[in-house]
Nucleic acid binder design. Structure first.
Length: 679
DNA sequence: CTAGGGTTAG
């Protein structure tokens, strides 16, 4: 946004004085507006105060100035002052006053003004209706916003945009889109504001096809150079996986704003979630880190959005070194006081394996939201700190913060770590009775896991029967493992048969059933399953590990011939460590899981991908630095044993974030407590 | 002479 310069305003001011136009109220009102528009509110106020007469427009101009320069409390004070002098507000005045209430987050004041509006029956007016619509939307009352919108007699583009963005604000993307189609149906032309908002809705519902249509509509309407439109289109393409398309927009944007940079970084972070084989998404992550550095280099000042994205990026890359540098920058810029940034920082330290620093960052936060509490609880659970997690949950309730579904996932996970099944059941009941929260799949998975691990198979099965979801792969696999461990072949067979009925199927899914048939010696069934397995596509997850050093990602595969770095050196280091581990009592026997796996070569020791990553880390980081690794599949028990030894032999902290949980190896022990559940 | 709507985050 181009801003007027104060010097220009002063020139205008001087001209007005010279020409003697200062007697003219219209001219002087214009001057107040000029000062306001360049952010010089003190000067604007000075001009206003020096006026012999004022009309409503003059008052409204000053109020507007304060609202636009983020001083809503002053805006309201002037509004009340105006009423005291006996001036009647116009629809414009009321609209901007309502706006001040939104930014002040004062619903009470808004309601007072609303009462006045109701008294004069001017709710149907577009300027007022639009403002009311966004006010109530900001306070989470979408129903009322819709009602107000419907009542507006002459809806304009802004009314439509207001209701669409209200839906977006309140998490009703689909309703927002249906308002958009209604708008088109009514032949109201969307403008750049509308299109921007709609593009971001397409992004929320992840509808690339719709998004493309809206984007081309924007171009057709001549908004291809509009920055917000381009930013949201770029973000949409990035999130939907059209990375090249997104970069095309990114590179074409000449006067890219801070938002542009933030959006491309955030987009990369968003697509980095564990899916299957997303090495390229991880490489995209390093690219995002580079973009961040480039942005700083170009002299742009990062803001809250930048920091929260880039801290999350570090947590996903397990890049503590970078994270610490960014931590320092958040302090320097004063951004750390923001809740979102603070929560992201807590998460970053925890995911990098430092629960102590995470907890310190949490304690130092000046304000905490539900998300901050949930982040800390969940991370205590991830680190196997059951008591701290549960204590924090009680603290949170004590200060009156209401937990949500995700909080309870953290709480149940904390119980799971210590196999506290009955406590977990109590929390499960509390969630439903006290907080009226519907359990989701994650809750059931955790409970089933706990039941199975503590040998309470029947209860696991009862729970599965009671839940109102179709059991997934995890649930059936857990039950099968439990049934095998506790010798309940009927239940195991039942679960295995249900497992292979799930769609989509792959040959991996059939293995539990195969094992069940083998155990009960049903050879014919076994050969049928084998036949089925041959027909199905083997969708085996490739095993990858990554290590991030100085903002660069290095990836490794198992038994790799050629990896980044010096091959020979890494192999020798691993052989040496393997030999020394044996003196510590490490023995490669092959875990039970590995024995079942046809591919596993038991006679010779296969180096898993994480072992290469560790070796690379040992060779390329300072002596005492922690080794931080990401792995896309779950670790096997054998590796887990070996890495425990490595943490002694190398005297390093080794952190591995695998598909399922965080392992922090220190002095021969792992934070997971050797409890890594099933599958 | 004054308004009402937009993009990026844990």
């Amino acid at each position: 946004m181009e801003r007027r310069l104060v010097s220009d305003a002063e020139a205008v001011h001087a001209h007005i004085i010279k020409t003697g136009a200062r007697e003219d109220l219209y001219v002087m009102t214009f001057l107040v507006n000029v000062y306001a528009q360049c952010g010089a509110m003190i000067a604007a106020r000075k001009v206003f105060d020096g006026l012999p007469r004022r009309n409503v427009v003059t008052w409204t101009t000053l109020i507007t100035g304060y609202v636009h320069n983020s001083e809503p409390e002053l805006a309201i004070r002037v509004y009340l002052e105006m009423l005291e002098t006996g001036s009647y507000p116009t629809n414009y005045t009321l609209g901007i006053a309502l706006n001040a209430c939104s930014s002040l987050r004062s619903l009470e004041l808004g309601k007072q003004i609303h009462a006045y509006i109701v008294k004069y029956r001017i709710e149907q007016d577009a300027s007022i209706g639009n403002a009311l619509c966004s006010l109530y939307s900001k306070f989470g009352n979408l129903d009322y916003a819709v009602k107000t919108f419907r009542g507006i007699t002459e809806k304009n583009v802004i009314s439509w945009t207001a209701i669409i963005s209200a839906c977006s604000e309140n998490g009703k993307a689909a309703s927002g889109l249906s308002f958009f189609s209604e708008m088109l149906w009514e032949n109201v032309e969307p403008n750049e504001f509308t299109l921007t908002c709609v593009l971001s809705l397409c992004c929320t519902v992840m509808s690339l096809s719709l998004g493309k249509q809206v984007h081309s509509l924007s171009i057709k309407r001549g908004y291809q150079l509009n920055l917000p439109v381009r930013n949201s289109a770029m973000y949409l393409y990035l999130k939907c996986g059209l990375v090249d398309e997104a970069y095309k927009l990114f590179n074409e944007i000449e006067s890219s704003s801070l938002v542009t940079w933030n959006a491309i970084i955030a987009g990369h972070v968003q697509i980095m979630d564990f899916a299957s084989d997303n090495l390229s998404a991880y490489q995209g992550g390093t690219r995002a880190l580079e973009i961040f550095l480039r942005m700083i280099h170009s002299g742009l000042k990062p803001d809250l959005f930048t920091f929260s994205s880039v801290l999350t990026l570090c947590s996903k890359l397990v890049a503590q070194e970078q994270g610490e540098q960014i931590h320092a920058q958040t302090i320097k810029t004063g951004c750390l006081s923001d809740v979102v940034v603070g929560s992201a920082l807590v998460n970053m330290y925890s995911k990098c394996g430092s629960i102590r620093r995470a907890s310190k960052a949490f304690v130092e936060m000046s304000t905490r939201t539900l998300i901050s509490w949930t982040t800390m609880i969940t991370n205590f659970a991830i680190h196997g700190k059951t008591q701290q997690a549960l204590q924090l949950f009680e603290d949170m309730r004590l200060v009156g913060v209401k937990p949500n579904q995700i909080t309870f996932v953290g709480v149940l996970a904390a119980c799971g770590h210590s196999l506290m099944v009955d406590e977990a059941l109590n929390y499960f009941e509390m969630m439903q009775k006290e907080y009226r929260i519907k359990p989701v799949m994650d809750h059931f998975e955790l409970l089933v896991d706990m039941f199975v691990m503590s040998g309470r198979i029947d209860e696991a099965f009862d729970l599965i029967k009671k839940m109102h979801y179709e059991p997934n792969e995890f649930i059936w696999s857990a039950l099968i493992t439990g049934a095998r461990l506790h010798r309940n072949p009927e239940l195991g067979l039942y679960a295995a048969e249900r497992l292979i009925k799930l769609e989509p199927r792959d040959s991996e899914t059939c293995i539990p059933l195969l094992k069940m048939y083998r155990a009960v010696e049903r050879w014919i069934d076994m050969s049928n399953v084998e036949k089925l397995m041959r027909e199905l596509q083997p969708v085996k997850l490739r095993d990858w590990s990554w290590i991030c050093i100085k903002g660069k990602v290095y990836s490794f595969e198992p038994n790799e011939q050629f990896c980044p770095g010096n091959n020979m050196e890494m192999h020798m280091l691993l052989e040496d460590l393997l030999g020394r581990a044996k003196t510590l009592g490490y023995e490669f026997s092959g875990s039970s899981e590995l024995k079942d796996n046809e591919d596993a070569n038991i006679s010779s020791r296969i180096h898993q991908s994480e072992e290469f990553a560790i070796a690379f880390g040992l060779l390329n980081t300072p002596k005492a630095a922690p080794i931080q690794i990401i792995k896309n599949t779950s670790m096997c028990q054998n590796c887990h044993d070996f890495i425990k030894c490595l943490s002694i032999l190398t005297a390093r902290k080794i952190v591995i974030q695998d598909r399922k949980r965080l392992h922090k190896f220190v002095d021969g022990k792992c934070s997971c407590g050797d409890f890594w559940g099933l599958l």
